[in-house]
Design a protein around this nucleic acid. Sequence first.
DNA 1: ACAACGGGGAAGACCGGTCTGTCTTCCCTT
DNA 2: AAGGGAAGACAGACCGGTCTTCCCCGTTGT
Lengths: 195, 195
Amino acid sequence: MVAEAPAPETAAAGSVARIMTVAYELFSRRGVRDVGVNELIERSGVAKATFYRHFPSKDSLVLAFLEQRDKQWTVDAILSEARRRGNTPTERLLAIFDVFGDWFLREDFEACSFINVLLEMGPAHPLGQASIDYLARIRGHVQALAEEAGLQRPDEFARSWHILMKGSIISATEGDMQAAKRAQKMAGWLIEHHR
Amino acid sequence: MVAEAPAPETAAAGSVARIMTVAYELFSRRGVRDVGVNELIERSGVAKATFYRHFPSKDSLVLAFLEQRDKQWTVDAILSEARRRGNTPTERLLAIFDVFGDWFLREDFEACSFINVLLEMGPAHPLGQASIDYLARIRGHVQALAEEAGLQRPDEFARSWHILMKGSIISATEGDMQAAKRAQKMAGWLIEHHR
DNA sequence: ACAACGGGGAAGACCGGTCTGTCTTCCCTT
DNA sequence: AAGGGAAGACAGACCGGTCTTCCCCGTTGT
């Protein structure tokens, strides 16, 4: 049975947009391997031929999803929010873990898609490689904040900081709701040692 | 079941042992979703009926693998080795990241199966739950070492420590070979703050 | 103005392959 | 004679991907 009849106006709007919306929802919540093309097209009310006209393969849709995730989650949801919450570069760095703390509490917390895809596909797979690239972008943002804060050896700083981010995400997936606070405490020490 | 028949336990035990050996190899390297029953039985030279006589389902084999992984990797390869390398409880804690450093350099580095399965299956799936349990066991070992070292709030300590362990593993999967050193530095600060 | 045309999308059959799991057949050993 | 194991066919479901069919709608030619 069809979930819901696609409204005419949404049908008029781009099929690509609907596919991307559904893909973002399903991929971020359940991973990319667990979601098949048939489910994607059914839930976005699109014909299979239409899907394959816009995306040459499922993997290319996953690539588009990862890029969307970078914009929508990494940049808009996490980094912009952290920049908004802090007044100084140091505060903004630490605010990342405040945002994480709120994020971990969400009912529909879905972990980090880049880590998920990297571990699902392996670092050798093109999608794993793409995930590694996007994770490097995150590290780049942290490094930029470190440079704004005038910290020493910003590359090393960002790599250590990223360990705390990723470790806390895994701990939150296990159910530790205080993971962000713990990571933030260690993050504070890390800042001290890079001043 | 039959209790009297002496049974060719060499054959039966041989089959189970061969299946477990192959499963450990393939599951730890490629994850559990990527390895099918057909490949498992082919590479262990066992009939399908034999496989399903000893394991009621693939998932039960995965559970057995996770238990084996806990014994063979967590306890024997990591924790015992760390205990061997350090002379004091504190040294032994820090030595975990020395062992990690060596492990990250291995050509066939395969990340942490518990994290892999947790993210592959999700925290709600029985196999994800089992992975969470085994990760908690790891934290228990760390907590025991913390208590031996007389550190304060050993539970909190172990949870923070575990963040460093998991984060460094993900970073190593991305290709950062120095991840263990970075985590070890932060781990040192963590010890200082729990004295 | 109206009919013919044509393109895009929806629906879904279809293909070859995979998956887990069952069941049959035959052989080998005891 | 009997039972376990190897081999593998088989079932039923799913996978990604191709292709056909039909329909709706806008354009165009007359």
